[in-house]
Design a protein around this nucleic acid. Structure first.
Length: 419
RNA sequence: CGGGGCGUAGUAUACCGGUAGUACGCCUGCUUUGGGAGCAGGUAGACCGAGUUCGAUUCUCGGCGCCCCGACCA
């Protein structure tokens, strides 16, 4: 339980004048993030809780398909990247680079294929060592020419990146399928399942397509064409007759939508394993490059998308699975009404024993301010305790997504929270 | 990187070639307490640099920063 009087962040009545994007305006107003410079946001207690909730779900789903979590260094050795031709040239635009005191340079990682492939050289040498799957949730740096749309396109952001190391193409294809399913589970769990589509996008050198997970959102950067029946989509970038024939789609059933790329999975083939010498011996003793895949997911971006699609004129509105707290208890205690705070304390103890996380607004403010803050912060369940209801067995419960409160028994309240 | 806009208290905004006003916040006191309450008092501000001018927050130029459109974007 966190006492709101102790929460160091404050809400604001006004939206910041230097943000247009709904996600940034709401997240800043409600005190979830702090803007440092363009495209760079710090996470404050409430925002960090949301990210941790998202990350927990990601970890559960990644672990369930055999992912092993790692944490690689941000600082990157240029030599590795030179060997895969991603240090200079086209990559110039994206790198943040920094100088070493004694001379020389390091880069701040914008992705980690090179680093992890190099690490795996120490650990993979036989077909018996394969397949292996490693992932991390970590800060990425990209020197965007133009940061925009609040947290949706930042220069520093969290990314979950998973990499697969397989013997054969078939082995990788099977895992690739598993990741697709795991991603849809994640999107469903965080409340974006209905509006997220597996989307065919350009594949690069090693496969005909890559797959993006595109979440419908008005502030998105991507245009996708959705087949609602089949629950798949095609990115505008690759939409042509050949692709449609490949996928068995018809132009007539496709609907144009704006979306945000919240995940992207693709085959890397042997590009990095060959470039960096990650080889294994098969049963006959012959050497082959490891077949790799890469699977990205953006927690920061997902937080922004949820703010965009669920937020309304009153503020944020979090799905229960990613909300910073399970319930927001608002007490309207007047002078001499100690029975109100006593009832809150009893309720908190009971709810915490059932594992719920509570934000308790114990501040001595007017009801209007407390309700407005509660709406702005967007915890899904609000419980109001005041002289109006302190004498009953029932609890006054209002959902963020509904207009009216209802009176629930303790058991009804608990089952509502467990939904 | 090309184009456009903007930069005034903590926040949001206004006015002005003669040193800035309002609201919210914050502090003090009193009243108030189911949708950002009231009264009184107080606190706090012109992004940086150069130029024009008797005088620049205001005009000009440069820089920096922020936002938007485009380009870019495993």
């Amino acid at each position: 339980m966190l006492l709101q009087s102790q929460l160091f962040t404050k809400t604001r009545k006004e939206s910041p004048s230097d943000e247009v994007a709904k996600n940034a305006r709401l997240l800043i107003r409600a005190g979830f993030v702090h803007k440092e410079v363009a495209g760079v946001y710090s996470l404050l207690p409430l925002g960090f809780r949301v990210i941790e909730k998202i990350n927990k779900i990601i970890r559960e789903e990644m672990n369930a398909i055999g992912g092993q979590e790692v944490y690689l260094s941000v600082l990157q050795n240029p030599d590795l990247w030179k060997r895969t031709d991603r240090w200079a040239g086209e990559a110039d635009e994206i790198w943040f680079r920094t100088q070493l005191k004694g001379g020389g340079e390091l880069g701040l990682g914008f992705t980690h294929e090179e680093a992890l492939t190099n690490i795996m050289r120490d650990h993979i040498s036989s077909y018996k060592d394969l397949p292996k799957y490693a992932y991390q949730i970590q800060t990425k740096f990209r020197n965007e020419a133009r940061a925009k749309s609040g947290v949706l396109r930042g220069r520093e952001f969290l990314m979950k990146d998973l990499y697969s190391f397989c013997k054969t193409r078939e082995e990788q294809d099977a895992f690739y399928e598993l990741v697709q399913e795991a991603y849809m589970k994640i999107f469903t769990r965080i409340g974006l399942g209905d509006r997220t589509y597996l989307t065919f996008a350009s594949g690069g050198v090693f496969s005909k397509y890559s797959h993006e997970f595109q979440t419908l959102c008005d502030t998105g950067e991507d245009i996708i064409f959705v087949d609602e029946e089949k629950r798949i989509a095609v990115n505008k970038e690759v939409l042509n007759d050949e692709v449609l024939a490949d996928l068995g789609l018809s132009r007539d059933t496709l609907v144009k939508k704006t979306a945000v790329e919240t995940g992207n999975i693709f085959s890397l083939g042997t590009r990095f394993s060959e470039g960096l010498g990650l080889l294994f011996r098969d049963e006959k003793g012959e050497q082959h490059p490891v077949i790799m895949g890469s699977y990205g997911f953006g927690p920061t971006r997902v937080m922004g998308v949820i703010a965009e699609v669920y937020g309304d004129e009153k503020g944020l509105s979090w799905p229960a699975t990613v909300a910073p707290f399970d319930a927001h208890i608002v007490s309207l205690e007047k002078e001499g009404e100690s029975d109100v705070s006593r009832r809150v304390e009893e309720l908190v103890i009971k709810l915490e024993s059932e594992g719920f996380d509570i934000l308790y607004d114990d501040r001595n403010l007017h009801a209007g301010e407390k309700f407005a803050d509660s709406d702005l912060i967007g915890i899904p369940v609000r419980i109001v305790i005041s002289s109006k209801n302190v004498g009953t067995d029932l609890f006054e419960v209002k959902l963020r997504t509904e207009n009216d409160a209802k009176m629930l028994s303790y058991q009804e309240l608990v089952s509502l929270l467990k939904r």
